[in-house]
């Protein structure tokens, strides 16, 4: 065991680099996924069949095909057609497309969950279609979609471990290296579990903070400061609403 600890200490700088790679993949993939999710989620609600049909096809395709296969396609097959991307770019694009497809369903569902009266009020006030979504509907849908997006973000983090197969030295790869150095499978994969858990937990905390803020913005729930301090929530919040 002390040998293992020594190996772990020796491996820490490399493990740290692995964490950086995993975070780059996760945050890059999540950013791309979010943009795609909002775009596809909005398009899925469009009245025009010319917009809705391709959206449906894209979503079903990227949701329905394996992330590993998508990674391999981008990494090994696209170069055959003379289109070569770096490993990191491939990882981000694949994660973005895959989780963007899932996310679009979350966005679509959240938009549908905003009370129809809100849409009607924007129409009665002659607000344009883009403006009504940006200023009125999305801020309310945003508060609803965050918990579901948190789930996807955690899944995306764990899905990023597949990047090892496109030659990226992420956490998963470095854990493998640790196993080789220590020849202790139990120990090295236990470290692996802990590292991924810690990363996931940090992401969850961040998303929870976003959720509290988003809810606060639509006039529901306590402020972030109140939550962090665990102070009792003043009863006046939300009271009096008929």
């Amino acid at each position: 065991m002390p040998d293992n600890l020594q190996s772990l200490v020796d491996a820490l700088p490399r493990l740290g680099e692995g964490v950086v790679v995993t975070l780059q993949l996760t945050l890059g993939g999540a950013a791309l996924a979010f943009v795609l999710a909002v775009a596809l989620g909005l398009a899925a609600r469009a009245r025009s069949l010319w917009l809705r049909t391709p959206t449906r096809v894209v979503v079903e395709f990227f949701r329905g095909t394996s992330l590993v296969v998508q990674l391999f396609w981008l990494f090994y097959v696209l170069p055959v057609f003379g289109f070569r991307l770096e490993s990191m770019a491939v990882g981000i694009v694949a994660l973005g497309l895959n989780y963007g497809a899932y996310g679009s369903e979350v966005v679509r569902g959240s938009l549908n969950a905003v009370p129809v009266g809100q849409w009607e009020a924007t129409k009665a006030l002659s607000l344009g279609p883009v403006h009504r979504v940006r200023r009125v509907i999305l801020p309310q849908a945003w508060a609803l979609m965050i918990p579901l997006l948190t789930n996807l973000l955690i899944q995306l983090l764990k899905g990023s471990a597949l990047a090892t197969y496109i030659l990226l030295h992420d956490v998963n790869y470095e854990i493998g290296q640790l196993r080789i150095a220590t020849r202790d499978t139990f120990f090295s994969y236990a470290v692996g579990l802990l590292v991924y858990f810690a990363l996931a937990y940090v992401l969850t905390l961040g998303m929870n903070a976003l959720e509290v803020r988003a809810k606060r913005r639509v006039g529901a729930g306590p402020t972030l400061r109140e939550v962090v301090r665990l102070a009792p929530v003043p009863t006046s919040v939300g009271a009096g609403a008929a």
């Binding site: 006030l125 403006h131 200023r135 009125v136 309310q140 006039g219």
Partner: peptide, 19 residues
């Protein structure tokens, strides 16, 4: 059907300003 993400004033000026 007031917009919950805006203040009372925000609700009232939103459309006059933007529409």
């Amino acid at each position: 059907n007031l917009f919950p993400n805006m203040t009372v004033l925000g609700n009232i000026i939103e459309a006059p300003v933007h529409a």
